[in-house]
Each structure stands twice: as C-alpha cells, then as structure tokens.
Amino acid sequence: MRMYDAIDLNLLRELTVSQYKLKDQSSFFGFLWSFLNPLLMLGVLFVFFRMRLGAEIEHYPVYLLLGLLLYTHFANTTSLGMRVLRATRELTTETVFPKEFLVLSAVLSSAVDLVISTVICLAIAFASGIAPTLALLWVPAILVAELVLVAWVSFFLAAIFPFAWDIDHIFHVLLRALFFVTPIFYDPSFVGQGLAQTILRLNPLAQVIAMLRAVVLGGEGLALSTFALFVIPGLVLLGLGFALFKRLEPRFAEYV
C-alpha cells in the first residue's frame, strides 16, 4: 500500500466537506434538526424513566443527554459508513483513489456534529448546576476514543456490505439491541452482576459513555490505564478493519 500524499489528504478534506454540506448541516437550522433527534429521545426517556430508573441518578437529564449523544453519533455514523460505498457508487466504480477515503470522510463529517453537540451538552450541563472541573480536559480525548470506535466498526461494515446487503437489516436490529444493552437511561448497577453486567463490560460504547459521564458528571479525571485499555484495542481493531477493507477493495466495484 502506498503512503498518502498532500493530494490524497486534500481529496479526503474535499470529500469530508461535501459530505457535511450534503447532510444539510452547514446551515444552523440543519444542525439544529440533527440535535433535535437526541433531544426528543431525551424528553421521552426522561418522562418515562425518571421516577424509577432515574430517581437514584444525580443530574438525570444530563446523564441521559450524554448517553444519547454518543449512542446517536455511533448509530448514525456507522450506518452512514456502512452504506457509503453504495451511496457513492459512481465514485466507487468509476474513479481512481483510495476508497477508504469514502469511509473516513463519512466518519470525519459526522465528527463535526459530535464536537458541536458535545459543546452544547456541556453548556446545558453547566446551566443545570454542574460545576466545570479540570477533568473536562479529558473530553477531547474521549471524543477521539469515540471516533476510533466508530471508525473501526465502520471499516468492518463498509468492507462487508457490498457482498452482503442484508447486513444493513442485521445491523439495524443490532443497533436497536445496543440501545438497551448500553446504560443510556439506566445505571449499570441496575442490571445486577450476571451475564448482563458482563455484556455491559464488553460493550465498547458503554465504556466510552461511562468515561464521558465520569469526567462531566463526576468531575473525575480518568486513569491513563483506563483510557489506554479502551483506545489500544480500538486502534488494533481499526487496523484490522482497515486491512480487511483494503484486501477487499479491488472487488468493491464488482459488487456495489
């Protein structure tokens, strides 16, 4: 595999910018609309669960918001990344450039939303009485961890999708299940110590949400080892997903 040059990185940038604009989010109202989705879910979950599941959780609305923020980003971006080769079929089949740029541009264009949404979430957190602490310096690192997670899942899905279109349906069932096996609207202790707790521990999205809540709501800085234990396996999986994608790349044009 050849190394990327300045021309390649310029292409990645242009693809990212165009994908972002196409999502109709370069305008204020366009972005507002994308933020309304988790906000609406927040309202529903808050009304239904605050009396029981949320009663023991301090700052429950912000707790919900942080969980929804990362889950929504994960679900939207991995779905976009999975379908990007087919959505940009002409680029996949008629042009000569590294096709991983299509996946990366999907991840990066969504990263802009993630950063803006996080800033809004933090503003809401402070307005609701949560004091800012130095632990917030971990937030950019946690967002990077989220992007690594989203990128490796996207690469695996994008690599497989052209050969197995029903992966789309399977993944959406899994995403729905993921919403419930991730502590978005309940505390991890709610599920007890059995199999469910083991699933929570193995769920990378649950880990990254827990890290964000710890620094925003708990004001606790992360132990470097905790962060490394999340990010290093993520980077390994990103490498594997990327390798699989590159191995299958010459066949994409035949199948998308």
Binding site: I7, N10, L11, E14, L15, V17, S18
Partner: peptide, 11 residues
C-alpha cells in the same frame, strides 16, 4: 474544488 480533488488537483 471537489471534482478537482478527485482529478488529483490540490486546492
């Protein structure tokens, strides 16, 4: 700018 990048022209 987009098509230029696809044609390997820098911004």
């Amino acid at each position: 700018y987009l098509y230029g990048a696809i044609c390997r022209l820098h911004r």
